[in-house]
């Protein structure tokens, strides 16, 4: 970790000094224990505040469409960014959707050994008492007034990392390897399968329970690199598609439509889930689309830059069984 961090700093410093990039998006130390915060550095000196550890969870690709829509000189501006496997896949999709071009970005890829879910660890300690955190290859040590507690990373991984099969970025200009092996999942995600095995009433109950907590803060949308619409259907007034209340019908409408907009684009980075202050398991729904798209079109978003998005292209081989013949 320390070595990777050092490599990031020196390489970013060099890139900025040589004016190969104008700004670099990375992570800095957070103000709270077990947290990091995205940061924008534009000088060699500033590059020293960049860090790398198992809490660098934010998908930084989320910032790019916004930055690219604002830069005055699109040709000459180049943005550097650090990418884990999932983040790089988001970038690939953004490039396919013409939100940016490959030459506008300089990607420092990092082979990822899985991110640790800080909320999970905090729920096991008295979060008010935490003084410091240390990290080794496999363990997180949390120091508090009550003493030290050691947590296994593997047991406290972020949910999507458990079944991630793309720990090494799919695109990069430079790859940094950490001391650990990239984490290659051997199991598949069973979230959807488990859900579908339940009886219908129970499924509805789960849906109600999960989404019923939503406060419509739109953090799931705003943390998602795919959600770059200038005006989101959820807030549009001309026309207003549905209500802005926290009644279950409005909430379900919002999440259903937002998640359907992710079909064939969602890379399962889990940014929406981590951003959600109510801890709603949105992956239950996004995963279903990921699986569906893979099964129908054999497509995995963000893996192959040259592959066309299935819902943005036509193929005679596309399955048509979703069309229901009138009886």
């Amino acid at each position: 970790m320390k070595r990777a961090e050092h490599e990031i700093r020196s390489n970013v410093g060099k890139l900025l000094k040589q004016k190969k990039i104008d700004v670099f998006i990375g992570y800095e130390k957070g103000t709270l224990p077990l947290r990091t915060s995205p940061c924008f550095v534009s000088s060699e000196k500033e590059a020293r505040k960049l860090i790398w550890n198992s809490f660098c969870t934010n998908n930084l690709a989320v910032y790019l469409p916004h930055i690219m829509s604002r830069v005055k000189n699109k040709r000459s501006t180049r943005v550097g960014i650090i990418c884990k496997g999932c983040d790089s896949r988001s970038l690939v999709e953004l490039i396919k959707e013409k939100q940016l071009t490959r030459d506008q970005i300089y990607i420092i890829g990092i082979s990822c050994s899985g991110m640790v879910d800080y909320k999970r660890i905090l729920s096991q300690v008295n979060s008010d008492e935490v003084i410091g955190v240390d990290e080794t290859a496999d363990e997180i040590t949390v120091r508090s007034k009550e003493g030290e507690r050691v947590f296994s990373k593997e047991e406290n991984l972020c949910e999507p990392c458990r079944t991630c099969k793309h720990a090494v970025p799919t695109v990069y200009d430079m790859l940094i390897r950490t001391a650990q092996q990239p984490r290659q999942a051997t199991t598949s995600d069973s979230t959807v399968h488990d859900f579908l095995m339940k009886p219908r009433e129970e499924r509805w109950q789960i849906l109600e329970q999960e989404l019923g907590q939503c406060i419509r803060c739109y953090a799931c949308r705003n943390a998602c690199p795919n959600c770059y619409c200038k005006e989101c259907f959820a807030e549009q007034t001309k026309p207003r598609w549905f209500g802005v209340t926290t009644d279950l019908t409005d909430i379900i409408f919002y999440h259903t439509i937002r998640i359907f907009h992710q079909a064939g684009r969602c890379v399962d980075c889990g940014a929406c889930v981590r951003a959600c202050p109510m801890n709603i398991n949105l992956r239950l729904f996004t995963r279903m689309l990921v699986d569906e798209v893979k099964e129908r079109f054999g497509y995995e978003p963000g893996v192959a830059p040259e592959e066309l998005q299935p819902l943005a292209t036509y193929s005679a081989k596309d399955k048509q069984d979703f069309m229901i013949e009138p009886e």
Partner: peptide
């Protein structure tokens, strides 16, 4: 720069 523009801070 780093703000995502969600409503968490205001709703909480």
């Amino acid at each position: 720069q780093k703000c995502l523009g969600c409503g968490i801070c205001t709703y909480f």
